[in-house]
Design a protein around this nucleic acid. Structure first.
Lengths: 189, 189
DNA sequence: ATAATTAACTAACACTTGTTAGTTAGGATT
DNA sequence: AATCCTAACTAACAAGTGTTAGTTAATTAT
């Protein structure tokens, strides 16, 4: 049922290579070799190296921003929202750890789509901020320096791709809840 | 009194550029232009692009590993040790945020020195682990999943370079203590 | 004053880069 | 049977890469 196109194969192959050496250090010939073909043949499926990067990053960034907005709007308390944010990151990262590496390390090499990416990121971070802020106002979480709390949680969640190389689904639930425990107990009174 | 050699100027200039685009995307001509000279002139002071990367990364990695060892050996409780680890990162990062970017993002492009770097990192992480372990045994910190706690703290501390672009010394003390509060309260019972 | 050192320059090198053009063989569609 | 489409290929290009060689002017040491 699930049709895997040659283009998608190229993109996942490229993402794996980008994770190891970064976008700039990976050549079209590297990608082609990993696919078992010649560099020129890649262009039957993709239009440029840049398009590969865009296809890896933008869909992930959009997913994060959309889901963060839904969590912010949801009718639940701050602690649940934070747990949902952690679960969101664990889920997406476990589904595509290589893509997450590009999202975190190679976004600055986006060209046409750079401004759009930055816009998505700002929205995502502002929604995160807004959740923390109302949690502090409601006295649901500790009144520590908000930017420090945001920075600490974001840093950990963004680094998950180095740590979750596609574990089993059962383990993921555990990781998500243990991570929530560690992160949230640093915020909860 | 403090003699700043031309070589050191090149290295700090390069580090700044590496932070923005990564080692592979920065050319010798980029570095030269930022220095107000031609690429070939750089070779009067350095022997290769690779040497610049090595000079940025290795001294930082050595400093971290040495200091972590001292903290581990020191005669104090686990919470103090963790606070000292946070302060260590805040100090080094504030002194050289650009170099920290290379340490975290470009270490894989080391050639001759890659194995040595990895050795330093393993030692550093094992000492960190050892501190957490004895803290759990002594019931000084919560008995959460140790790898999760280590991962969370390390992720946050490693990301500091994105967040501390050389603040004033007074603020640094505050950042260090607020970060300790957020990180440690997630660990402390 | 002469010699040596420093630190810049121009010119060029061999190689690698992303990409295009044109070709070819096999499979599906008419 | 004839045509089109897919997806690979070879060959090549123009631009950019790190680096070397040789030169030159200014500063420092003898």
């Amino acid at each position: 049922m699930k049709e895997i196109t040659r283009k998608e194969e190229i993109i996942t192959t490229a993402a794996k290579l980008f994770k190891e050496k970064g976008y700039s250090a990976v050549t079209m010939r590297d990608i082609a070799t990993a696919m078992g073909m010649k560099a020129a043949s890649l262009y039957n499926h993709i239009s440029s190296k840049q398009e590969i990067l865009k296809d890896i990053i933008i869909s992930l960034a959009e997913e994060f921003t959309e889901e963060m907005f839904l969590i912010k709007q949801s009718e639940t308390n701050t602690l649940n929202k934070l747990e949902n944010i952690v679960a969101l990151h664990v889920n997406i990262t476990s589904r595509n750890p290589d893509g997450m590496a590009s999202l975190n390390s190679d976004w600055m090499h986006l060209e046409e789509q750079l401004d759009y990416y930055l816009e998505l990121r700002v929205n995502y971070e502002n929604d995160f901020r807004s959740i923390l802020k109302s949690g502090i106002l409601n006295k649901e979480i500790a009144n520590n320096n908000m930017e420090v709390m945001l920075f600490s949680m974001l840093s950990t969640l963004r680094s998950l791709y180095m740590w979750i190389p596609s574990k089993e689904d059962l383990e993921l639930q555990k990781i998500s809840s243990e991570l929530s425990k560690v992160l949230i107990n640093g915020i909860n009174k």
